[in-house]
Design a protein around this nucleic acid. Structure first.
Lengths: 199, 199
DNA sequence: CCCATGACTGAACGTTCAGTCAGCACACAT
DNA sequence: ATGTGTGCTGACTGAACGTTCAGTCATGGG
């Protein structure tokens, strides 16, 4: 037992921050909000983290760890380009569902540049696009895909999988919109990306 | 000449706000920033607009006017579902390019719920999705499209066209990313949505 | 028993920012 | 001249927020 409180609350603080940042966005959340949310004084947060921004940075690292895996396995994995992209889509969408707040933190600068860490985050997104583009280019050269522009296709693919996160925002905040099951959504994106809507 | 200054500066203020909100996001922009950007005192902004939020509201109305047209003509227009969706895509992407800041203001709550006006904005996005879904449903019933889920397809379509706005953020902030010409982008989305990437 | 250390708090400080207010300048009508 | 209204400003206020700091409390080793 003993001195367990330390690391423990550090983690609790981070999780509260994750949820609040994900729900309301970085600037809309006061440090005192985070403190209150996990029953702790504001000063304690500064005991464990140097900055408000360093809290965000810790979350971004965690988020990158979760989502970058999928891109890396798509690039380095074996199998056809299509197979690798399919598993990319499935695992990304699943992670998006499990770590909704983290994904929102990652992609936020796309609609809100000028926020904190947006330069780093955009760079990360740029790398993801390039990685996906490489896989798509492989597929095009191998005759698996039509001769599409890999860069554009990669952007669109990322746009599609991230639509998941956006859709969950929508469905939570506008009454009519139903929550789609994760699996159905991933399958839908796979179909749309590879076959389009043609009859 | 005479009292021309009134409406004129009112408009100038709004345009400065549009640019700054679009670039940095609502909360990152101080009212005094807007004032400085168009060479005017802070107090004058409060003379013309009651609130900081009312500035945003004025912009949102303007943005809705620009983008809702495309949805309405897609719903009410004549021609096959596919034709109407194609012109929707083309005109939306063109507007996205011309009114980048406005679009960013419109879609921001997707990655940043909890911001100001996010409820209204999300509702508007929800309506757009429903409208598109209706057109897609028509196409499915008429045998034009495969039997896809119209709601999901509509979400994905909107995700695709808005990827344009995101891409422009990307290309401006990460060095490697090139700016794609508008036309090529629209055509790409049309192809991807209707035919996928199949060879 | 004492002291060092780590976890934690309450109260404050400095700054930033949305919003206010009293008043100036100028045009026009009387 | 004198009033009236519109467009506009500089100086200011109150609140919120990030951040700091002095100090409390429990624990565990010497």
């Amino acid at each position: 037992m003993a001195e367990s409180g330390g690391k423990d609350t550090r983690e609790r603080i981070l999780r509260c921050a994750e949820e609040l940042f994900g729900q309301r966005g970085y600037e809309a959340v006061a440090v005192s909000d985070i403190a209150q949310a996990c029953g702790v004084s504001t000063a304690l947060i500064y005991y464990h983290y140097t900055d408000k921004e360093s809290l965000l940075r810790a979350l971004v690292e965690r988020a990158s760890a979760v989502f970058d895996v999928h891109t890396r396995t798509a690039v380095e994995g074996t199998g056809s380009a299509r197979e690798r992209l399919e598993t990319f889509i499935e695992s990304w969408v699943r992670s998006a569902d499990e770590h909704e707040s983290l994904l929102r933190i990652l992609v936020r600068p796309l609609t809100d540049p000028g926020g904190p860490l947006s330069a780093e985050l955009l760079e990360g997104i740029g790398r993801t696009v390039e990685d996906l583009a490489a896989v798509i280019a492989e597929g095009v050269e191998g005759g698996e895909f039509a001769p599409v522009d890999p860069g554009m296709a990669a952007e669109c693919l990322l746009g599609l999988v991230n639509t998941r996160a956006a859709a969950s925002v929508l469905s939570k905040l506008v009454p009519g919109e139903p929550v789609e099951p994760v699996r159905a959504n991933a399958d839908f994106i796979v179909q749309l990306f590879f076959r389009g809507t043609s009859a």
